[in-house]
């Protein structure tokens, strides 16, 4: 006679991925760093990243050399070539805005991939999508991966409101991609 243990599992779930560390080495400051901006086509994403880059240049000495790239498929993680280019050309990458079900998850996957390739990254998601963003961190084997959130919604903000968001995010972006922030986190 069959028992409950004989009921088949419909998930086919394999053991979770064991991921390597998802933290690239950090610099102590951002003087002269070449920024990469990876926008995902969501409305206001490019503007938010541009505003952050301007602040990092004027207030933290980031280089005027900025590589701007657009994700071709926002729902999916970055293709290898685009990842390789960012890793080659940039010292720090900012990406976002994770503002939908699939793109918030894929933004986190991109951040983790960049970190594993040695480039500190700040991933910005809307705070309405933490479940899916954190779910992706788990799938990638980095359940503690720290991404940044900004209040939902982002898409309908006017340019001044986007600038305000950049200003609010700046200290957390700096903390995320520098050694000071990493130490702070380790201490907390």
């Amino acid at each position: 006679m069959a028992t409950l243990a004989d009921i088949l599992d419909p998930t086919g779930q394999t053991t979770p991925r064991i991921g390597g560390t998802a933290q690239a080495p950090r610099r102590t400051d951002l003087t002269g760093v070449r920024l990469g901006l990876l926008e995902n086509t969501k409305h206001n994403a490019a503007l938010l990243l541009d505003e952050l880059a301007a602040l990092l240049q004027s207030e933290h000495g980031a280089s005027a050399t900025v590589l701007r790239r657009t994700k071709t498929v926002f729902a999916l993680p970055l293709p290898e070539e685009q990842l390789a280019e960012l890793v080659r050309e940039c010292d720090v990458v900012l990406t976002g805005v994770g503002d939908c079900g699939s793109c918030s998850a894929s933004a986190v996957a991109d951040g983790i991939a960049l970190e594993r390739a040695g480039v500190p990254a700040a991933v910005i998601c809307s705070d309405a999508f933490t479940a899916t963003a954190s779910g992706m961190a788990e799938v990638q084997g980095a359940p503690d991966y720290a991404y940044l959130t900004t209040p939902h919604p982002v898409a309908i903000l006017d340019p001044d409101a986007v600038r305000d968001r950049a200003r609010q995010l700046l200290p957390r972006v700096v903390a995320t991609v520098t050694a000071a922030g990493a130490q702070q986190e380790a201490a907390s």
Binding site: G12, C100, S104, A131
Partner: peptide
């Protein structure tokens, strides 16, 4: 839901 793991309030964000 089961085989792709896209579950409401998780990866399913309807």
């Amino acid at each position: 839901r089961n085989a792709l793991g896209v579950v409401p309030h998780g990866f399913e964000q309807a």
